[in-house]
Every structure is written in structure tokens, then in C-alpha cells.
């Protein structure tokens, strides 16, 4: 159906089509998941209580309507991630890492590799948050510490979009790049 695809692409280029996507935001506890979501969807910055049950929020980027799921990051809540990540929809997995917490980086690494395994072909974005604190890890350090160099450079056997971006939810630095990445990635992966 070449014609149909062409019309679709044209409408999409005009911005008439609304695409539905979903973001699954996971990460260890106190990584900044809820803060990230509340800033990109409502522009509200506050100290959130720990997320004990998943909560949903939605926002629109360009012509893509995103349903974002914010999942709790405590040890016993992590088993929920798999249920959300492996549902059959246009979802992008976002893994948030606290780039100051070097002690928990090993734990984050093992969890991240689990997520990378069971997320299949879905794109995964790793966000290093809290870049406003001086002693934070840079993007390169995060790639090294999380041991995802192969994924980021595309050297894995199965094609998979994986990237690391850093941001600060407090100063908002890096958030526009993340938004750009999400929209571009969605277009590449699901709209064609």
C-alpha cells in the first residue's frame, strides 16, 4: 500500500496525525523519575514522595501523544517493570540513573542490563540525572560504569537504539535534548 503510506507520511508531515506512544520510566529509587516526569509533563519542580504505585501522566511532543508510566524504583517494586516494558505498544523505555550515587551504580548496572534484555527491540534511553551537583558523573563515566559501550556504539548483534543523555531536572539543562531524542527516536522506530 504505497499510496496509503505516502498519504500517511504526508499527513504526518503536516502534523495532522496524532501518534500514540508510551514512555516507561524506570530506574532505581531516588533516581529522579517522578521529578523528571512532572517537569516534562507539568513543569512542576518539587520534592516528591517515593512512588509506591505506578502513576501515569501524558504529554504531547510535536504530534506525538505520550502516555508516560512512572514506576517505583525500590527493590520490591522492580518486578513490576517487566510487565510494563513488555506490553505490546509503541513504547520507549527510559532508565534514569542518579549520576551522583556511585555506590548504587553497580546495582543500577545489573538492573539496566536486565531491562536491556527483556525490552527486546524497544529503544532504551538512559538518563543521567542530577547533573547540577558538582561531583556528578559525566556521560562517558556513566557509559563506562554501566558497561553499555557496546549498545551505545551499535556493536550488539540485534539492532537496538540505546543512548545515554545527561540532564538536570532542577536547572532544566539537557531536557530539550532529551525531548528531541525522544521524538526523533519515536519517528525512527515507530513511524518510519
Amino acid at each position: 500500500m504505497f499510496l496509503f503510506d505516502w498519504i500517511n507520511a504526508f499527513l504526518n508531515w503536516l502534523g495532522f496525525l496524532k501518534n500514540e506512544g508510551s514512555l516507561i520510566i524506570v530506574g532505581l529509587g531516588n533516581a529522579g523519575k517522578t521529578t523528571f516526569l512532572s517537569i516534562i509533563s507539568h513543569d512542576i519542580l518539587k520534592a516528591h514522595m517515593p512512588t509506591l504505585r505506578p502513576h501515569q501522566d501524558s504529554f504531547t511532543l510535536k504530534n506525538i501523544h505520550f502516555n508516560a508510566w512512572d514506576l517505583g524504583g525500590q527493590q520490591n517494586l522492580r518486578k513490576l517493570w517487566r510487565d510494563y516494558v513488555t506490553t505490546d505498544s509503541n513504547d520507549i523505555v527510559i532508565f534514569v540513573v542518579d549520576s551522583n550515587d556511585r555506590d548504587l551504580l553497580g546495582e543500577a548496572k545489573s538492573e539496566l542490563h536486565d531491562v536491556l534484555q527483556y525490552s527486546g527491540s524497544r529503544p532504551v534511553l538512559i538518563i543521567g540525572s542530577k547533573q547540577d551537583i558538582k561531583s556528578c558523573m559525566t556521560r562517558d563515566e556513566l557509559i563506562q560504569g554501566l558497561d553499555i559501550g557496546d549498545y551505545v556504539t551499535g556493536l550488539t548483534t540485534a539492532p537496538k537504539i540505546v543512548d545515554v543523555l545527561v540532564c538536570s531536572n532542577v536547572t532544566r539543562r539537557g531536557l530539550p535534548q532529551i525531548m528531541n531524542w525522544i521524538t526523533k527516536c519515536f519517528e525512527i522506530a515507530y513511524i518510519k
Partner: peptide, 25 residues
């Protein structure tokens, strides 16, 4: 901390990208 000096920006830094259509706006 160098955090608090920049926190008065209510909007995102990159003004050119009009990506943000928050429902509460």
C-alpha cells in the same frame, strides 16, 4: 551549590523548540 541560581527559569532553556504542550498550560 550552583543549583539554586538557575532555578528561576520556569521554562526550559531551549526556547526555540516548541515541543512542550503541557495540558496545564
Amino acid at each position: 551549590s550552583n543549583v539554586s541560581k538557575n532555578t528561576n527559569n520556569n521554562r526550559l532553556l531551549d526556547e526555540d523548540i516548541q515541543w512542550h504542550e503541557a495540558p496545564s498550560s
